[in-house]
Design a protein around this nucleic acid. Structure first.
Length: 614
RNA sequence: GGCCCCGUGGUGUAGCGGUCUAACAUGCCACCCUGUCACGGUGGAGAUCGGGGGUUCAAAUCCCCCCGGGGUCGCCA
């Protein structure tokens, strides 16, 4: 890949450590005749009894080293002892390979090293899994021997890609006047949102630091400090259950600016992400300009606030067609204020009873009362050519042919498609269909893996009503500013207030989000009150923020991008663990270091802690 | 906490009530081999099928519980 070549060429301009003069991967015809010393790992050995070939591997690649007893007898004997993953230093002349023995599969395949010296720097036990082959290995084993796993090309390439991404971001933002500022890891617990990781204080019995869930408050305080343009590649910590795209600790590009409008951030990040992808992953097809859709549109058309925009299969509201349907489930749902919505799944009219029942179960598990399926048989003349015999549905006796045609047209269906209909209140029908859309997209491979579609989701509601606790909660976080035109309804209709909040989505993942912030103390206090905080709580937890707003904090806003997810998508991986050097498993355990672990009694005593029996 | 999937030599798989004394590939060990590159050849070692209980004349195979791993819902301001 291009970034590997880039690194190798850069590496070659630097002076090498004393144990090697060149890297294995950089050698080519230009080096023929040179005497080189290499150091690396034995990737593979081919012992012909007489000649011994060793594929020597280092970070930059692989080169063939030849041991000939007629060249150096003792060296050849030593080479006979080599095994996989031995660490060796070898010296010899770079030579063109004999005609006909070149290996076009290897970048260094035109040349080989005629070794006259070899030194075994370290031996190795037989590795527990293959390092030189791309075979799927159980992940827990890979994590236990992560240092071996990272020797594999796939993982090495992922780490290199990650380096390139972060390097590009730093250079890009530096060019535009942003200052990278570090913020502390030991901060104050403000237990809203996710659970905090806590660190007990030795010097203050009974008190705890918290690890930052993000540098949110600190970066706003940096704006109060007049930094104006800040960014940081920041570690964040959240004590919640893991997922393929979530780890207890993860990395964000955290950024904040003063004196800006929402448009400034969106334009900056569109430019950053486009130039990033085009530079670092030129082989990917990136759709531009980025789409912008409202939260309401995302939910209505895709049933998700992070839809995969690489394929269509959009959700349509069919309520108008079915308002007077003979099908009671639909008619009563609509009469009760609900909606009936649907999607058309291409080419799935041939689904069996069993497959349809599976979809039905999925719809129920997503919260639907049920799922109505309509299979459109193949026929000439498009939807108009459909006849009664060609339509198969559990609800067929309640649906006229004309209604089916209307539904099919509304969904943009074609003969051979499978229509999925769901009734429900509010967003329910959309959310269920959104889940089915995602599943069918995956099954039918509707999304091109080499395409990247990014977009901004905007116009989020500021609040959502939490029934269980009986007060409003922030959609994003409590520092997000309401839209100016909605200020007048903040008291009268909080549910209609929109925030100056934006998310960045990519291929079905939320990779970032941010907002313009509140910088007026009175408004911030009012929002906290609406979120159910009492005045004394506000002072105790967020007094420093209100103080700052009372001392000339400028208008400001920012964004955070999940580096792990971004790199995962660029690498074509399905889990962020594949782009993190030392990730934790699903139970939040580091199986390599065996963390978390017990600590001794003395450590507990110093921290004024005792373990409660449960 | 709920639901789904997985657990067979070092690794990856097959076997899914008796023919399993558990198969295949690769790796490993020994010997042979001077142009291979997933080298080749000959021979060899290596798993009581995650653990426990049950059903059965008979269990890797069926059932239950537990453990470990993965996915997902809840959760992730």
């Amino acid at each position: 890949m291009r970034y590997t070549v880039f690194l190798a060429s850069k590496f070659s301009h630097r002076s090498f450590p004393l144990l090697k003069t060149h890297s294995c991967g950089e050698l080519n015809k230009k080096h023929v005749g040179a005497r080189v010393t290499l150091a690396g790992w034995v990737d593979r050995r081919r012992d012909h009894g007489g000649l011994i070939f060793i594929d020597l591997r280092d970070r930059e690649g692989i080169v063939q080293v030849v041991f000939n007893p007629e060249v150096a007898k003792e060296t050849h004997e030593t080479a006979g002892e080599l095994r996989s993953e031995y660490v060796v230093q070898a010296s010899g002349a770079v030579a063109l390979r004999p005609p006909g023995t070149e290996n076009p599969k290897l970048p260094t395949g035109d040349v080989e090293i005629i070794a006259d010296k070899i030194k075994i720097l370290n031996t190795s036990e037989t590795p527990p899994f293959y390092i030189n082959e791309e075979v799927e290995v159980e992940e827990s084993l890979r994590l236990k021997y992560r240092y071996l796993d990272l020797r594999r090309k796939r993982m090495k390439d992922n780490l290199i890609l990650r380096h390139r991404v972060v390097k590009f971001i730093r250079d890009f933002l530096d060019d535009r006047g942003f200052l990278e500022v570090e913020t502390p890891i030991l901060i104050k617990s403000t237990p809203e949102g996710a659970r905090d990781y806590l660190v007990p204080s030795r010097m203050h019995p009974g008190k705890f630091y918290a690890l930052p869930q993000s540098p949110q408050q600190l970066k706003q305080l940096l704006m109060a400090a007049g930094i104006e343009k800040y960014f940081q590649i920041a570690k964040c910590f959240r004590d919640e259950d893991t997922r393929a795209d979530r780890q207890p600790e993860f990395t964000q590009l955290d950024l904040e600016m003063s004196f800006l409008e929402q448009e400034d951030i969106l334009v900056l990040f569109e430019e950053l992400l486009i130039s990033l992808v085009e530079t670092v992953c030129p082989q990917k097809r990136l759709v531009k300009p980025f789409r912008r859709i409202s939260y309401a549109e995302a939910m209505e058309c895709y049933g998700s606030d992070k839809p995969d925009l690489r394929f269509g299969v959009e959700i349509k509201d069919l309520s108008k067609i079915l308002v007077n349907s003979e099908f009671t489930v639909f008619r009563s749902a609509i009469a009760g204020g609900g909606r009936v919505k649907g999607i058309a799944v291409p080419g799935c009219a041939t689904y069996t009873r069993g497959q349809l029942e599976e979809l039905n179960q999925m719809a129920r598990s997503l919260g639907a009362g049920g799922l109505v399926t309509i299979s459109l048989g193949m026929c000439d003349g498009g939807i108009d050519g459909l006849s009664v015999e060609m339509v198969k549905s559990v609800a067929s006796k309640f649906l006229s042919l004309e209604q089916v045609k209307q539904i099919a047209r509304a969904l943009g269906a074609r003969p051979g498609d499978l229509l999925l209909l769901v009734a429900g209140d509010g967003d329910l029908a959309s959310v269920v269909l959104g889940g089915l859309r995602t599943e069918m997209g995956r099954r039918l491979k509707l999304a091109d893996p080499n395409t990247i579609v990014m977009g901004f989701v905007i116009d989020f509601p500021l609040f959502w009503w939490n029934k269980e606790v009986g007060h409003w909660e922030s959609m994003h976080h409590p520092f997000t500013a309401p839209r100016d035109e909605d200020m007048c309804i903040l008291d009268s209709a909080p549910e209609k207030v929109h925030g100056k909040h934006y998310d960045i989505i990519c291929n079905g993942f939320e990779i970032g989000g941010g907002s313009l912030r509140i910088y007026n103390a009175a408004l911030q206090k009012k929002v906290f009150n609406m979120l159910g905080y009492k005045d004394e709580e506000i002072i105790e937890r967020f007094g420093h923020m209100l103080d700052a707003f009372n001392h000339g904090t400028p208008p400001h806003g920012g964004i955070a991008i999940g580096i792990d997810r971004l790199v995962m998508l660029l690498a074509g991986e399905e889990s962020i663990r594949e782009v993190i050097a030392f990730p934790k498993n699903q139970s939040a355990i580091d199986v390599l270091l065996d963390a978390p672990s017990h600590v001794n009694e003395q450590q507990l005593n110093e921290l004024h802690l005792s373990i409660r029996e449960e």
